[in-house]
Nucleic acid binder design. Structure first.
Lengths: 341, 341
DNA sequence: GCTGGCACTCGACTGTAGCGAGTGCCAGTC
DNA sequence: GACTGGCACTCGCTACAGTCGAGTGCCAGC
């Protein structure tokens, strides 16, 4: 397929103009706004080819052209130039850094920052437990038959869960349980704990056995099986920008999708541990409700390791270069912040 | 003002029909669908009076009537009959009860349940810390100069916070700190802790003083001053029902308001500890962004005490009797659930 | 291979007309 | 005095015709 440089330039111009104006762009307007060095007629010929190849389309005859998902894809892959952050944006990111006291705090600030910068819906996954190591397990007796298990992960995440013991357990035994559990599990990757937990039960003294059994069940259940992923969301109000033109008039499916944590995890949760930025455009999306949306996401984590994902979701008609730059920048800053702890 | 029984019946009929059909209701349709026992002309006269009094209005001449905020208010206060829950709804509420393992779990299930039942946006406040008593404070050393403080409240809430100590503190001292803090604070209402925390610092031994000071600062800061209220939200997709007719076409302000925790707290957070159901209709709302919405909310808590609020938000054109019934029922069930712990 | 010119298409907008739901008013009835 | 039937009137909604103009595809010429 013969897509010479000028045709690519035309496509790029169409994408840029359409993203900016939200209106189908015609050949005349194009040559006026961009230095293409050719006449509208020539551009029209190029457009015809681009349309034939499926990169742009006409909403109706006698209207300008609009990029297709495929067109955006080509644009993102080959045509977009990196857009450096503005000083204001850079400052905004740095400012948000200071004063975060907590993992919770960091995640909340991040998601708000991202929503504000990109003016899209922002999604941040808490550091995945599967990628975390146990830093400490605390057992707090609530009553003689109730224990609060608090797990602190090296990523800063803290999870707690109530455990109902089969029989009353004296305080000394709780101390023993705490020691045993910590000796065995501290420092190990959460995904790899099941055999260790199993061993824990088998090795424990007879009088501790029943308590240890329920304890281990709960540990496995909450921390590993029902993989406790968390998500923070912000900027849903941004969906209403572009007044119903985006998302073919109905926010319904989008809002529904955003309420499903599983869906969001699929979107921005890191599958392979890489920090490459991923861009999903419209139809490429596997979730039916989000066929009209695009997602820009990446992994983040302290140093080179990746512990979670973050990203933004918006209309296919979005500023890809800008959003990609911001998502990357924010991810890097969050990573640094996590590394400090 | 002469609002005799029939005029009230007319208003009620208008509200019910408008809520059901979402269309301005005319005099003829009214007498057909309700047994008013009079002719359309008579109804028209009544309508004229109701309009004069500000209970209904005409979107334009030659259209049917629509209730005003004031009309809804009268309807809610004097005209609506209690709507008993259907067996299906009752079952749904009971079913959600079983299997909740955690406060987090309870809150999440509740908010989803409420959204599903009412088909509105549901909001649930976590049990307020101000209303909670300290059950236990755990100090977990992360490093020699870092402490994780975990507070467990009697309402089931668990809050944690990282504390940076001014100087390394040996393990025995942490044990001492833990003992002191618990002796002093366990069992006391969180709102009343500030003087106790103050005393804690003054009474502590010299070598513990610096650590205790920072510890107390953090405690006060996170638990009392920056009153750590939490909110769960569900069902935002329900806002799109009624296709843009509700909320005068723009979801924007609503979505914005829903992102502000402070706003939500003002809405459903319990100000006075009563379990009365509150209904805010349209303009009665103090938040400008929510002038087109109504809120039904109530307090909940174990037994007779109230520890938090929950409710639903939707268009002024909502099924008030139904929503009130459901909000109440859910609050009662959640209360029972909390009492069991 | 590019360009200017030209005929053509078709959505957006405007103006007009008819329809019908719904009203307000009034005179008449119980 | 309260209710009712009748009637003229209002006004939004829909359909339809006409115009405008942005944008196109194609073609002959450079």
């Amino acid at each position: 397929m013969g897509l010479d440089d000028r045709k690519l330039a035309v496509l790029r111009a169409i994408v840029e103009d359409y993203v900016a104006t939200q209106e189908p762009v015609g050949s005349k307007a194009l040559v006026e706004r961009h230095q293409l060095g050719v006449s509208p007629a020539t551009v029209r010929n190029d457009m015809a080819v681009l349309e034939e190849e499926g990169y742009i389309r006409q909403p109706h005859t006698s209207a300008g052209r609009v990029p297709t998902d495929r067109g955006y894809r080509l644009f993102v892959d080959r045509l977009s130039r990196v857009k450096p952050l503005s000083p204001a944006e850079r400052r905004a990111i740095e400012r948000f850094l200071v004063g975060a006291v907590d993992l919770d705090d960091v995640v909340h600030r991040t998601v708000r920052l991202l929503a504000q910068l990109t003016r899209q819906v922002a999604v941040v996954q808490y550091p995945s437990l599967a990628r975390s190591k146990v830093r400490h397990l605390e057992l707090v007796p609530i009553s003689t038959t109730r224990l609060m298990v608090v797990m602190i992960a090296d990523t800063g995440r803290v999870e707690q869960r109530l455990v109902e013991l089969p029989a009353p357990v004296p305080a000394e035994d709780v101390t023993d349980l705490r020691r045993l559990v910590n000796e065995k599990l501290v420092g190990s990757q959460l995904a790899e704990t099941p055999p260790l937990v199993q061993a824990l039960v088998e090795e424990s003294a007879t009088h501790l056995r029943p308590a240890m059994t329920t304890l281990s069940t709960v540990l496995l259940e909450t921390l590993v099986e029902r993989h406790e992923e968390r998500i923070a969301l912000a900027g849903t109000a941004n969906l209403t920008r572009g007044g119903l033109l985006d998302f073919q008039g109905s926010l319904r499916p989008i809002l529904e999708a955003l309420e499903e944590e599983v869906v969001l995890l699929k979107l921005i949760g890191e599958t392979e541990p890489s920090n490459a930025t991923r861009v999903l455009i419209g139809d490429e999306n596997e979730i039916d409700n989000l066929r009209a949306a695009s997602v820009v996401s990446t992994g983040y984590g302290p140093g080179a390791t990746i512990v979670g994902g973050l990203g933004v979701l918006g209309p296919t008609r979005m500023d890809y270069p800008g959003n990609i730059a911001m998502v990357r920048a924010v991810a890097r800053y969050v990573g640094e912040l996590l590394a400090q702890n």
